[in-house]
Structure formats: C-alpha cells, structure tokens
Nucleic acid binder design. Structure first.
Lengths: 160, 160
DNA sequence: AATAAAATTAGCGAATAACACCAATCTTCT
DNA sequence: AGAAGATTGGTGTTATTCGCTAATTTTATT
C-alpha cells in the first residue's frame, strides 16, 4: 500500500524529521549515516512525492491560551451524498476543529475541537456546531488530561 | 491563562510557523512586517519559553503505509491513583498510540491509534491494548474517511 | 506635580559565519 | 556494468551577532 519503496535511510530520515523538522541537512545526514548530498536528495524526493506533506511548528496548547480540548461525537441525518459533503466541507473550514473523521460505531463523525475555555466552547457549540447542516445529535467529551500529546507516526513496519 | 504576552507580531509569527515550520527567517520576517533580526529573536524567545515546543515534518499517512486510524474508547477499573498512572505511563510509551486523553463522558480514555491495516490492529488490540493494566472495556471506532487532517491550532483569540 | 535623567524595550542595518545547493569526479557495493 | 554514495570545490542564500537608534516607562529631583 505504501506508494513508495523505503529503505533504512528513508526510514531513519523520516523519523528524524518527525522529531525535529528543522534539523540542518548536514546534521541529518550525519545522524542517518549518509553524506550531505544524497541525504538532501532523498529529502527533496520525499517532499516531491508527497510523502512529506510539509513542516509545522508544534505549539504548547496551554501557553497559547487554548486550554480546552473537546472530542465531539456527531450523528447526522441519514447521509445523502450531497448533505454529507456539505457537512464535511463546513466542518473542514472551522479553525476550532483541528481534526475530523468519519467513523464507524455509535456516532458518524468525530471532531477534535480546541478552544480557550468552557465559555468559548459553549459559544462555539451553540452558534456553530449545532447550526451545521444535517446535525441530529451532538455529544461533547471534554479532555480532562492530556496523557500523550499528538506524536510522530509509528514507522515501525518500514525497513531498517 | 496564556503564560506569555503576545502581540500581533507573535501571533502572525506563530501562525506562519504552524503553516510552514521551515520558512526561512528572512521570508518570515518579511511576511509579518519585521526585519530579520527582531524576527529571529522573537522566534528564539518563543522557543526558549516553550511556547514553540518543536518542529515536525508532516507525513502522508497513506504513503508511509499507515492506512488505518482507530479511535479507541477505554474504560478502566475505578481509578486508584497508582493504577491510573500506570495505565497512562503504559499508553504513552506505545508508538502506535499517537494521541491519548483522559476524557469525560462514556469512557475514561480516548486513544488515537495508527497502524498499517486491520490485521495489524487486531494484533495490537489483542496483544497490547487488552493487556494494559486495569482495562475494563474497549470500544474501537474506525476512521472511514479523514474529513480534516490534524491542523494548526486556532490562534483567533490572540491580539492582532 | 512637573521636568529631566536613566533604564528598559524593541527595531534596524551591516558584517561575519554557517549552511544549502549544484556539478563533476571518484569510489563502493551488488 | 550499473546504481548509489562519497568527495571536492564553488556559489548563493540564510542565520546570527553586534552596535546603534527610537520610543516608552520609571525614577529622581526640584
């Protein structure tokens, strides 16, 4: 299923870049046991093929004033193609929604919502979420404690 | 609650670095309307104060062969301090668990698990999750479609 | 209370150092 | 023999540091 053949260098490289997306190419090369030129070529190829989608700064949620994370279960009206798509589109655009999936199980959609506090969530829920097209039921599960923050993907099955 | 006073420069800066964590300082500076030196100083301060926790490459989950995302609801035995901590510790260490929260609502914990396929999940569930200390009940919700991938934090309430 | 001096803060611009990138050639491993 | 890495050298870009200046706040003194 991987649309790319990876070897041990790619694997090490991707792991290193997930851990520190800003590591200089020279350091990265040394870290994975390669000289700078082929290392930088590999990175470029991985970027061009879309394996590396981009780079991002990881922020401390608390310290930027976003103290509340809510996992929102949403049930929608029996999905008609169009309605479902409209719902997805509407959800994708909301900045407070930092992740959204169509899921199996009790609910239809699972959203991860990040806001400053409970007051802000109340407002977001009533003014935005409840007004989304086709919503039938919403259940809010509040994050009480972060056991493990968003972490690198497990590249365990790759070679190397 | 923000442990830092942000102005409009910081806000623009954090937004830019969330969107492209590898943008050169000169470009970043121009983008936020500042000259390179104060821009790089601000970035450094934000890093040192922990507001910026780090940088990471964003990978294409499919293309690295991780086609399956599962949201796992876990109920545990009536938490004793020790047991709860043991559970959290055990969960944090698992590479397949890319996010974990203690939550309100039906279940106690919500885990985001990433694996290559259903076969791998079955193995992970039976060999690892079900053997975690104090687990009472596990419900697996499979991601059928990614509506919105993990996205930048909404810095809407910051000044500027 | 008002003014002046001092300290703090933050931005700018120039110089130096680090790094990335590219091309060409040589080497190694299969 | 071919594919991929190492090495070298040159070039342009980028980062970092320094001293300087402007604006604001604080403190001291009259």
């Amino acid at each position: 299923m991987p649309s790319h053949k990876f070897d041990r260098f790619d694997r090490k490289l991707l792991e290193a870049l997930q851990t520190d997306g800003r590591v200089p190419n020279t350091d990265l090369a040394e870290g994975i046991g390669l000289s700078p030129s082929p290392c930088s070529r590999r990175v470029r190829l991985l970027e061009e093929s879309g394996v590396i989608k981009g780079y991002s700064a990881i922020l401390d949620q608390e310290k930027v004033g976003l103290g509340l994370t809510v996992f929102v279960d949403i049930k929608v009206e029996r999905h008609q193609e169009k309605e479902a798509e409209a719902f997805c589109e509407a959800v994708s655009v909301l900045p407070e929604v930092v992740m959204a999936h169509l899921v199996s199980g009790e609910s239809d959609f699972l959203l991860q919502v990040v806001v400053p506090d409970l007051r802000a969530y109340k407002e977001f829920l009533t003014n935005t979420l409840l007004k989304l097209p086709g919503v039938r039921d919403i259940r809010s599960n509040f994050a009480i404690q972060t056991v493990k923050p968003q972490s690198p993907l497990p590249l365990i099955h790759l070679p190397g």
